[in-house]
Design a protein around this nucleic acid. Structure first.
Ligand SMILES: NC(=O)c1ccc[n+]([C@@H]2O[C@H](COP(=O)([O-])OP(=O)(O)OC[C@H]3O[C@@H](n4cnc5c(N)ncnc54)[C@H](O)[C@@H]3O)[C@@H](O)[C@H]2O)c1
Ligand SMILES: NC(=O)c1ccc[n+]([C@@H]2O[C@H](COP(=O)([O-])OP(=O)(O)OC[C@H]3O[C@@H](n4cnc5c(N)ncnc54)[C@H](O)[C@@H]3O)[C@@H](O)[C@H]2O)c1
Lengths: 206, 206
DNA sequence: TCTAATGTGTGAAATAAATCACAGATGTAA
DNA sequence: TTACATCTGTGATTTATTTCACACATTAGA
């Protein structure tokens, strides 16, 4: 498959929406409704779905149950990959205990911090380790994803350690701009950049 | 100005990178270095900058100090707009105390929660209020941005309340897909969607 | 004061993405 | 059972974005 990032992003959002619909007991959904929920057009949605090789029912739309199951299979969301979190401060610990993540393709299996003090005081049901264990744990437990929640000045260093340990993907919550090799999947979750983005939108839109 | 979302996003990232460079005492930066930091090409960077009507110096690149100042002026990052946070759970309280946000166009001036119990126990230097005060505060203090950190099932309702109160932009951290009028600036910060996105990337890339 | 090296600036070309348009298909209501 | 309304599926078209290519500085070094 070679889908554009935009398509992948919309598809994963559709999955989330289907999830909510299923919970509400809805059977069918139209491209128009999906489009409205995602803030795009029905054409785009149908095109995306068509690109995935999936089909709906004329005059009814898409079967929520079937569509969701099919998507989960295609995106391999059932296959629980493993994730770890580095930096157990305010943000890191919030993410550590965020149960919801389990339903979306990854399970957090370990936390790391450089401060032994922090490690001792932390209360969580997920195992936490000092940084010296990083490589052991990642290699030993086949951890695929590293979630970085350390201060900006340590972010690149932590990323390098993760890559060295054989990580395949990185989610970076720090405001630092991290450089990674092209074969590493990288996603910038920078909150401060989101604020600037909104600020810029304010002046271009209004 | 009518810049594409992609351009705006890159520009705001460039701003963040310039910030880091300034701190390190770097004077000039080339489009190539910026491109590497953002994971794009130097052509794209130069085009973006050219679109903004800004120029660099031949064979030297762009003056970090000047470029950053100019960008801040163009994006009005100096003009501190006001933001509020709705839902003071784990995530909400972490964001409430996140000082860094002040440097990026918004200042958090209020927190809201429906649980009086939570409001009483919370320890923060930012004022917190019950939901009944939402409209008063937003209107009275000219709050522009609402940051939603309530559970998914309440997210749409909170968004509606914010819009009713006259908010201009919304940042939604819940996994719910929220529908807002087109004149509201809306950004989806859904962490679970990011996980699914990465999961999808794993199978398309590897 | 040359010369080579390096990095910008920007129309033009190429590529990618979104939108359109309309032919099916099928449920619904009379 | 007929006519109509509605929603999908997808080539074709349009629009947007990225990439290219190269002229044009300017600096550094010989
Ligand atoms: N707090 C927020 O609301 C918020 C929001 C968005 C982004 N962020 C960003 O997320 C990151 C963490 O924020 P926070 O508020 O949780 O910070 P924090 O200071 O509370 O936590 C940082 C943690 O990282 C650990 N750490 C520091 N250097 C390390 C290293 N080299 N290796 C391993 N662990 C290390 C520290 O011991 C600490 O526990 C920061 O980059 C911040 O900018 C925070
Ligand atoms: N915890 C995380 O790491 C994390 C990460 C990403 C996203 N999220 C999402 O962010 C949101 C908050 O997560 P959390 O872990 O902080 O949850 P939480 O349960 O700790 O906090 C939710 C808060 O919202 C308040 N609330 C509920 N309904 C409300 C309403 N109608 N009006 C005002 N306040 C209301 C509750 O009193 C509570 O204080 C959720 O949607 C969650 O899915 C959480």
């Amino acid at each position: 498959m070679d889908l554009s990032n935009n398509t992948i992003e919309r598809i994963t959002k559709i999955y989330g929406y289907l999830d909510a619909l299923e919970e509400r007991g809805v059977d069918f959904v139209s491209s128009k409704e999906l489009a409205e929920a995602l803030g795009t057009t029905d054409h785009t949605i149908r095109k995306d779905i068509s690109l995935l090789g999936m089909t709906g029912y004329t005059r009814k739309g898409y079967s929520v149950r079937f569509f969701k199951k099919e998507l989960a299979k295609k995106l391999e969301l059932n296959k629980k990959r493993k994730a770890c979190i580095i930096g157990l401060g305010r943000l890191g610990t919030a993410l550590l205990d965020y149960e919801r993540a389990k339903e979306d393709g990854f399970e957090v299996v370990a936390g790391f911090d450089c401060s032994i003090n922090k490690l001792e005081r932390i209360r969580t049901h997920i195992e936490v380790f000092p940084m010296s264990e990083l490589e052991n744990i990642i290699k030993g437990r086949s951890v695929d994803l590293g979630i970085i929640t350390v201060p900006a000045k340590s972010a690149q260093q932590v990323a390098d350690q993760l890559i060295e340990a054989g990580i395949k993907g990185i989610l970076n919550f720090s405001p630092a701009k991290i450089v990674v090799p092209k074969n590493i999947i990288y996603l910038d979750m920078d909150f401060t950049n989101a604020l600037r983005f909104v600020a810029a939108k304010f002046i271009t839109k209004q």
